[in-house]
Amino acid sequence: MHKRYFLKTGAALVSTALLPPILLQRLNIMATSKTDFEITKTDAEWRTVLSPEQFRVLRQHGTERAFTSPLDKQYGEGTYVCAACEQPLFKSDTKFNSGTGWPSFFAPIEGAIATTVDRAFFMTRVEIHCSRCGGHLGHVFEDGPAPTGQRYCMNGVAMQFIPA
């Protein structure tokens, strides 16, 4: 009995250690832990330019409630930009209706995002950040449509839509 417990525990520990690199490789994303961003501000400075909900999501890695963002049903032509620094993140032609309640895209604009491994809540996920200011945008999953097979599940409050 003790041997079986030891084997199960060992397998769980090994898979926990190996899962993040495998997940990143399967998603074809290079994880970055960039801490120096082009735009940096103190929390007090961010609070003057962001709403309380934007601050909670972008600076404290929060998540907005599903189906609350008007950007989820926004399908006009244009660009989605970071709500904190206005960096272009996604083009409207990469947006799709995932049914999850959050704006979803199958590809970001090249160079617009940075990624880290998020191990919160006993899960391992790839977290998406703005590459210019480091603001938390959401997560990426590998259940999206062609051509990438990826679903960038973004917090609508973390972005603004700029019509074309």
Rank of each mutant, 00 (worst) to 15 (best):
H2F: 10
H2K: 14
R4F: 11
R4V: 13
Y5S: 04
Y5N: 05
G10F: 12
A11V: 12
A12C: 02
L13Y: 12
A17V: 14
A17K: 11
L18E: 00
L19T: 09
P21S: 04
P21K: 01
Q25F: 13
R26S: 11
N28T: 06
N28P: 00
I29M: 06
I29R: 09
M30V: 12
A31F: 01
S33F: 03
F37I: 06
E38S: 14
I39G: 01
T42Y: 11
D43L: 07
E45P: 03
T48Y: 03
V49N: 02
V49H: 03
P52W: 08
E53L: 15
E53T: 15
Q54M: 01
Q54W: 02
F55S: 10
H61C: 09
G62T: 09
T63Y: 08
R65V: 05
R65D: 00
F67V: 07
F67K: 05
P70A: 05
L71W: 06
D72C: 08
D72S: 12
E77N: 15
Y80C: 09
V81Q: 14
L89V: 09
F90E: 05
S92G: 03
F96L: 06
F96R: 13
N97Y: 10
N97M: 02
T100F: 08
G101C: 08
F105W: 07
A107T: 08
A112Q: 10
A112W: 08
I113W: 00
A114W: 01
T115W: 05
T116F: 06
V117D: 09
D118C: 14
F122A: 14
T124C: 12
I128D: 06
H129W: 03
G134Y: 08
G135Q: 04
G138D: 05
V140L: 08
P145I: 07
P147W: 07
T148G: 01
G149K: 09
G149R: 05
Q150Y: 11
R151G: 06
R151L: 09
Y152M: 00
G156A: 06
G156L: 10
G156T: 11
V157E: 04
V157R: 14
V157G: 10
M159P: 06
Q160H: 15
Q160S: 12
I162G: 05
I162D: 02
A164R: 13
